[in-house]
Amino acid sequence: MRARLAVLPAFAVLLGGCSGAPTAPSPTTPVTSRAPSPASSPAVVPDPGFSALEQEFGARLGVYAVDTGSGRTVAHRADERFAYASTYKALAAAAVLDSGADLATPVRITDLVDYSPLTERHVGGTMTLGEVAEAAVTVSDNTAGNLLFDQLGGPEGFEARLRALGDTVTESARTEPGLNRWNPGEVDDTSSPRAFAADLRAYAVGDALDADDRDVFTGWLRGGTTGAEQIRAGVPAGWVVGDKTGHAGRYGNQDDVGVVWPSGGRAPWVVVVFSDRPGLDDESDPALVARATGLVVDALS
């Protein structure tokens, strides 16, 4: 593991709103450029109750959410570092799409790690690269996550892809399962809510991916099966959510990142919620993420 000081670099790519009148795009309509441009005076919503949630749950909560139509944002500890756990799999899958790799390429399944519910069915055989990426995003298959790292040139290659988006914050150092062994104050395998949201926005809503690849990526996000109690539970019925959860299994870490398409054809929101607690063996609670999302909904609505 690389030793680093826990110093957060300034992240130059901000998540301001787009200029001009807000539109109501479909889930595949880009509303940002590859590197989202800051608005001259984005509307930042004051803390709608995140501090009270932290006290209630005995947790540290990091939130960044942006309405990509209006540019309104909600932020709490948005520039602090949190372990990203399995949420990286969403960005890694998008980075593979961005690389131009052929999703039909066969990938041999050999070295399994813990929690690999889909890849374990194919040991000794192959899956397509597209099936591997889908498994990583939709069921959080850990072997699939490592295979995405392999496709990108390891954690360093994944990190380089994020740097190309303008992300100078996210640090990727280890593969599964080691990336989950985060301790407070460490920098490896962490990001900030603001930085992660910028990456997710570029891939899922902006034009970092071409239209066809963006459709594939957002389809994987919407097909997620692990987040029913988190962001999905915090939005009104009828809203569409595509998300990727993360859970390191230590320090009460519980994360969820996603794109929310409100009803009525409104522009999508990008929502990132990270959380942890002070004790190594503290339990995580998906309800904290759901409640935080509910506060985001109230604030942005």
Score class of each variant (00 low, 15 high):
Thr168Asp: 09
Tyr88Arg: 08
Gly154Glu: 05
Asp111Gly: 03
Pro106Leu: 08
Pro106Lys: 03
Val113Gln: 00
Val63Pro: 05
Val74Asn: 14
Glu56His: 11
Leu162Met: 14
Gly157Tyr: 15
Glu80Cys: 03
Ala93Leu: 07
Thr87Val: 10
Arg174Glu: 11
Gly100Ala: 08
Ser70Met: 00
Phe149Val: 09
Ala94Met: 02
Leu61Val: 07
Ser51Gly: 13
Ala136Cys: 08
Ala101Val: 09
Asp98Arg: 14
Gln151Met: 05
Glu156Met: 05
Thr119Pro: 12
Thr143Arg: 05
Tyr115Ile: 01
Leu147Lys: 15
Ala101Thr: 13
Ala93Ile: 00
Met127Asn: 06
Arg108Tyr: 05
Thr119Ser: 12
Phe82Thr: 09
Arg77Ile: 01
Gly124Met: 10
Glu134Cys: 03
Pro106His: 03
Gly49Val: 15
Ala90Tyr: 00
Arg81Pro: 08
Leu61Met: 06
Asp111Trp: 06
Glu176His: 00
Leu61Asp: 07
Leu103Gly: 02
Ala93Phe: 07
Ser140Thr: 04
Ser99Cys: 11
Pro117Lys: 06
Gly124Tyr: 15
Val139Met: 00
Glu159Gln: 14
Val113Pro: 01
Gly130Ile: 15
Tyr84Leu: 12
Asp114Val: 06
Pro46Trp: 14
Val45Phe: 02
Gln55Leu: 14
Ala65Gly: 04
Gly124Leu: 12
Val74Met: 13
